[in-house]
């Protein structure tokens, strides 16, 4: 293969407990640690491993977002990607618009494989890979925990509700990663220094001429309903009595 395109989204770090703005207008993002969406990081790791096996020449990372997303692309370059592309926009894009934008990048880059996370941990949509594949009229394999490339096709093991589903897809294809696909590498300092010299190209979103009409608008963002305060019991006997009194077990 010539090229893998990996898509990275900048999101609130996995370990941050998100706080909501009191007026219901959204999540507090000011001063919050931001990172590569963990599923996307796994996608990048997989692309790097494929390159290290000699099965692809080049790994390109792409992101869509504000200029701050350069940080995540630099991290991607430090992990080992060869070059990066940022489609710069301040707008919050819906997954369909993201997929259309990625399709424009696909047309420029002609990748044999597009790898990305199955969902971003902010909006939890789980849509972009499937939509990109539909627009590109190519196969997709999503929730993938094992991937092998075999000439003009790829075999993917997918984590589905019933177990593991194996599919074969012709290349080029879009693959979305699940958690158990791999464990991403840690970035070492020399690589961070080296990454500063790698190419990071910026394209203005407006230049691509993509229809960015929104279909959905968020009316409010609220905290989830809280569960009532629970009780502690001090023995198995007390637990059984409690379960019986609530009618949850027989007796």
């Amino acid at each position: 293969m010539q090229r893998i395109l990996v898509c990275l989204k900048r999101v609130v770090d996995y370990n941050v407990r998100v706080r909501l703005k009191p007026d219901g207008s959204g999540v507090v993002l000011d001063g919050v640690k931001m990172s590569i969406n963990p599923f996307d990081e796994i996608a990048l790791e997989e692309a790097l491993r494929i390159r290290e096996r000699g099965e692809v020449e080049e790994v390109v990372v792409a992101s869509i977002g504000t200029s701050d997303s350069q940080q995540q692309l630099r991290t991607g370059l430090a992990m080992g990607a060869d070059r990066a592309v940022l489609v710069e926009t301040d707008a919050q894009l819906e997954p369909l618009t993201v997929a259309r934008t990625l399709l424009a990048l696909v047309d420029r880059e002609n990748p044999d494989l597009v790898l990305l996370g199955k969902q971003a941990i902010d909006a939890d949509n789980n849509q972009t890979a499937q939509m990109l594949a539909a627009l590109w009229q190519r196969p997709h394999a999503v929730f993938v925990s094992e991937l092998s490339i075999d000439g003009a096709a790829a075999t993917a093991v997918r984590e589905v509700d019933a177990g593991l589903e194996v599919v074969e897809v012709d290349l080029p294809a879009v693959v979305s990663s699940d958690l158990r696909l791999n464990e991403p590498r840690y970035v070492k300092l020399p690589e961070i220094m080296k990454a500063k010299k790698k190419l990071l190209e910026t394209i203005a979103f407006a230049e691509l001429g993509i229809d960015a009409t929104s279909q959905f608008s968020v009316v409010s963002t609220d905290p989830p309903p809280e569960r009532a305060q629970g009780i502690r019991v001090d023995s198995v006997e007390a637990l059984v009595a409690e379960l019986k009194s609530r009618g949850l077990v027989d007796g």
């Binding site: 999540v27 819906e94 941990i121 949509n125 959905f216 963002t221 905290p223």
Partner: peptide, 28 residues
């Protein structure tokens, strides 16, 4: 587009769904 994970219907075109692993609920 597509709306993911409808958890409540407020009207035929207004819904609630979870984001951030259920730490926030948006009305869309």
């Amino acid at each position: 587009g597509q709306l993911s994970d409808i958890m409540a219907v407020e009207s035929p075109y207004r819904f609630k769904r979870p984001i951030y692993a259920g730490n926030a609920i948006v009305t869309v």
